[in-house]
Design a protein around this nucleic acid. Structure first.
Lengths: 113, 113
DNA sequence: CACAACATGTTTGCAATGCAAACCTATTTG
DNA sequence: CAAATAGGTTTGCATTGCAAACATGTTGTG
C-alpha cells in the first residue's frame, strides 16, 4: 500500500515502449496482422521521417519486423509485431497498471488526517 | 473499430508528466504535504544533479513549488505539489487509463477462431 | 519526348532532453 | 587547519524526437 514500497516500478518502464509514438505504433500493430507504412502515417499523424526512425528503432529492438516489397510498381513497407514485441507490450502494460495504482486517485486528496 | 478512433490519446500525453523520473516525483508529492530533496533523492535513486534538473522543470511548468530554507545551519529544499500539478497528474492518469484500454489485453492473442 | 508532379520512404541537421561528473558553498570532524 | 561531509546547482555530453531535405522511382501533361 505504501507508495515508496512500489515506487521503483515507475523507473523500470521500458523506454523503447514508453515513447508515445512507439507505443501507438505497437498498439496498432498488436491489433492487426500486418500494417502498412502509409496507414500508420495517417492514423498517427507522425511525419514520414519521424515514423521511419521510430520504426527503425522498434526493428533494432526486435519488437517489430519490417517487410519490404512492391505493390504494382510502388515500394510497399509493411510492419508486423514480433513475439518479443508482444511481450514487451504486455510487460509495459503490467508496469503501467502498477504505476496507475501508485498515482493518487482523484479523491485521495481528501484523505486528510 | 475503437482502436483507431481513440488512438490519438496516446499522442496527447503530457510530456512533462510522462517522463518517468518526474512522474515518480509527482506521485510522491501527491501523497505528502511536503517532501524534502534528500528524501526524493533516496526513494527515487536519481542522482542529485538529475533530480535537481527535473525539479526545476516541474517548477518552471508550475506543477511544483520549491521552498528553500535552513534546517539548523544546513540548506533545506522542500517541494510541494501545486493545484496545477494535481490537475496535470489527474489528467495524465485519465489519459493513461484510455491508453490502457487501447493496449491489447494479455490473452487477446488467443482470440483466434 | 521532356519534364513536372506525385508516391514512398530514408537520411540529415538541429534543438531539446536526460544523465552524472564536476563544481560550489558551507559545515563538521580529525 | 586540512579533510571530509552535506546539500544542491551547473556543465558537458551522448541520445533523442522531429521535420526538412533528399533519394528513387512512377505517373501525368503539353
Amino acid at each position: 500500500m505504501n507508495a515508496p514500497s512500489r515506487i521503483g516500478e515507475v523507473m523500470a518502464l521500458d523506454r523503447l515502449v514508453h515513447e508515445p509514438a512507439r507505443l501507438l505504433i505497437l498498439a496498432v500493430l498488436a491489433n492487426a496482422k500486418e500494417v502498412e507504412f502509409r496507414f500508420l502515417e495517417q492514423v498517427s499523424g507522425l511525419s514520414k521521417g519521424n515514423l521511419s526512425s521510430h520504426m527503425s528503432k522498434l526493428e533494432a529492438g526486435g519488437l517489430v519486423e519490417v517487410k519490404k516489397s512492391f505493390r504494382g510498381k510502388r515500394p510497399l513497407t509493411e510492419l508486423r509485431i514480433t513475439a518479443a514485441g508482444r511481450k514487451a507490450l504486455a510487460d509495459y502494460r503490467q508496469s503501467l497498471a502498477m504505476v496507475m495504482r501508485e498515482l493518487p486517485t482523484p479523491g485521495v486528496v481528501a484523505k486528510r488526517k
